[in-house]
Nucleic acid binder design. Structure first.
Length: 276
DNA sequence: TTGGGTGTTGAGTA
DNA sequence: ATACTCAACACCCA
């Protein structure tokens, strides 16, 4: 589910409920979610008596900064965090619970159980998988047009696949890649190394602009996404092509086509987005 | 009823 | 290097 704007919104809404709360107990009902450390009891031990000092985002990852540790969490398709009184009944698909010292608890809910958690000693998280595989954040100074254009020039893949590659730029997913390419007037099947610098610039600007706008709207709710206060996003109203197959393109009126690119459903206006 | 599709990403295979 | 299939899992819908 969540791409950068949704994770950013979750971070912002979750913060106010968990900052300076101390974890007194941890329950794990689906151990496969915990990727590190291997031993679940060790995972619990390392978190117990730790307080959450801050939450950060890196690409699509949430980083819970504790006193001595950092919990790196990826929501994959359907992961959600929310805070509840301990007495409140559990929703279906709650898999991990971090009990606090104030009668509340942070709950991780994930219908498809695809999400992951990696726990590190503070400072180790950046030098290890999964974070050390990531390219720059789209909003980071390191994500310059020159960096982006160099990456495009040296790969033979189609542009959509490159934009989905988190090692190139961290945070874009299927929705925002389709929207970015529509705004840049570039066909998703165009080879990255065939793009001119002005086309690279159009994509680069469209990606940053689209993500910023989506953050401002609290993300995109297609099926199930809600932030940590339970609110839906609003950016679905701003989508041009994603989810609009067979509807008239908002720019030219020709029907939006849905195709497969790199195994992912892909929405394109073949009139506005030229292969050239 | 059932097969195909879903906002993700890793592994394994040519 | 790249592309493709499959896997993880639950649910929705034509």
């Amino acid at each position: 589910m969540p791409e950068l704007p949704e994770v950013e919104t979750i971070k912002n809404t979750l913060k106010r409920f968990v900052i300076d709360k101390t974890i007194t107990d941890v329950s794990v009902f689906w151990p496969n979610i915990i990727k590190q450390p291997d031993d679940i009891d060790h995972f619990k031990h390392l978190l117990t008596e730790q307080s959450i000092r801050d939450i950060h985002r890196r690409g699509k990852f949430l980083l819970f900064e504790l006193d001595d540790a950092v919990l790196v969490s990826h929501l994959r398709m359907e992961g959600k965090y929310s805070v509840h009184p301990s007495a409140e009944p559990l929703k279906k698909h709650t898999h991990v619970i971090f009990k606090f010292n104030n009668g509340e608890e942070l709950r991780y809910n994930d219908v498809r159980k695809f999400g992951t958690m990696h726990l590190f000693k503070k400072g180790d998280e950046r030098n290890n998988k999964p974070l050390n595989q990531l390219g720059p954040d789209p909003f980071d100074e390191a994500f310059t047009l020159d960096y982006f254009y160099q990456k495009l020039k040296k790969t033979d893949r189609v542009i959509k696949s490159v934009l989905l590659d988190q090692a190139v730029v961290a945070g874009l997913g299927n929705i925002y890649v389709d929207e970015t390419l529509f705004k840049a007037h570039i066909h998703p099947l165009k080879k990255a190394n065939k793009l001119k610098k002005r086309e690279a610039k159009a994509i680069w600007e469209a990606a940053i602009h689209t993500l910023k706008e989506a953050v401002a709207q609290g993300g995109t709710t297609i099926r199930s996404y809600v932030n940590s206060q339970g609110d839906m996003g609003m950016f679905q109203q701003e989508l041009f092509v994603y989810g609009h197959e067979n509807e008239p393109c908002k720019t030219c009126g020709n029907p939006v086509v849905k195709m497969k690119v790199g195994g992912r459903g892909t929405h394109v206006c073949v009139s506005c987005q030229k292969m050239k």
